[in-house]
Simulated scan of single mutants.
Amino acid sequence: MPVVELHLIEGYGEEDKRRLGHALTDAVRFVVPAAPEGVVVMIHEMAPDAYFRGRNTKTPAPALPDPAEVVRSYLAAMEARDLDTARAMQGDGFTMFFPGTGPMTDLSELIDWARPRYSFVTKTYEGFDAMPGAGDTSVVYCRGTLSGEWLDGAAFSGIRFIDRFELLSGKITRQDVWNDMGEARGRA
């Protein structure tokens, strides 16, 4: 039975500690074939005045937001066409790639690209997978199906998609989109 002990300076909320416990359990299970209940994670908290580094006490940094929740909120804002809220979730150097496009850096480019393709599109999510990326980057994949309406008013549904996001410091810096819309559009 793997046992992981984590020492934290007091100040993290219950949700932050829950996320840490889940992430550490998943990290162990990535290597060790143990059931979740077979992995023990113990979080020990200490008062800020009980921890010194360089002769000084330290205050804990705030926890980063859950990257999957950032992506979920971003996609909800995009679907609602709340572009200002979506832009606020983008980090410096944000870039997105959609099928058949080069890099786009502003949501207005995406709107212009989509305008001659369909009237609207909605997503049904089958899952979100978040993981560490290179360096300080987080990676989130979301997958599911697309539904909506072609320009001629015909409905479509069940079109597969996968989106991949990179986040840095809780902000989305890259979005890559793959879907079968081109194949479905050719049959419409």
Rank of each mutant, 00 (worst) to 15 (best):
M1T: 10
V3P: 00
E5I: 05
E5G: 10
L6G: 01
L6I: 13
L8N: 07
Y12A: 04
Y12H: 14
Y12C: 03
E14G: 08
E15K: 04
D16L: 00
K17P: 01
R18C: 09
R18W: 06
G21Q: 08
V28G: 07
R29N: 11
V31I: 15
P33L: 03
A34F: 14
A34D: 08
P36H: 06
E37Q: 08
V39H: 00
V39M: 00
V39D: 02
V41Y: 01
V41Q: 02
M42V: 10
I43S: 04
E45Q: 14
E45T: 14
D49A: 11
A50I: 03
A50F: 08
A50R: 15
F52A: 09
R53S: 08
G54W: 01
R55W: 09
N56M: 15
K58A: 12
K58E: 14
T59Q: 13
P62L: 08
L64A: 15
L64C: 05
P65Y: 01
A68P: 03
E69N: 07
V71W: 09
V71S: 10
Y74H: 12
L75V: 08
A77D: 01
M78Y: 04
E79V: 06
E79G: 13
E79D: 08
D82W: 04
D82L: 04
T85L: 03
T85A: 10
A86D: 00
A86V: 02
A88N: 06
Q90T: 09
Q90R: 05
G93H: 02
G93T: 05
T95G: 00
T95I: 14
F97H: 12
F98H: 11
P99Y: 04
P99K: 06
G100T: 10
G100E: 00
P103A: 15
M104R: 12
T105M: 12
T105A: 11
D106N: 12
L107S: 01
L107P: 01
E109N: 07
L110Q: 12
L110A: 09
I111W: 05
I111R: 15
W113M: 07
F120A: 14
T122Y: 05
K123W: 11
G127M: 00
G127D: 00
D129M: 13
D129V: 09
D129K: 11
P132M: 12
G133I: 03
A134S: 14
T137S: 07
S138Q: 09
V140N: 05
G144C: 07
T145Q: 05
T145G: 00
E149Q: 15
W150C: 01
D152I: 10
A154M: 11
A155T: 15
A155E: 07
S157L: 06
S157N: 13
I159P: 01
I159K: 09
I159G: 02
I159D: 02
F161S: 01
I162N: 05
D163W: 01
R164M: 06
R164H: 08
R164N: 00
F165Y: 15
E166P: 02
L167F: 08
L167W: 13
K171N: 02
I172Q: 02
I172K: 00
R174T: 13
R174I: 03
V177S: 12
V177L: 03
W178H: 09
W178C: 12
D180G: 07
D180S: 11
M181L: 03
E183I: 05
R185K: 15
A188K: 15
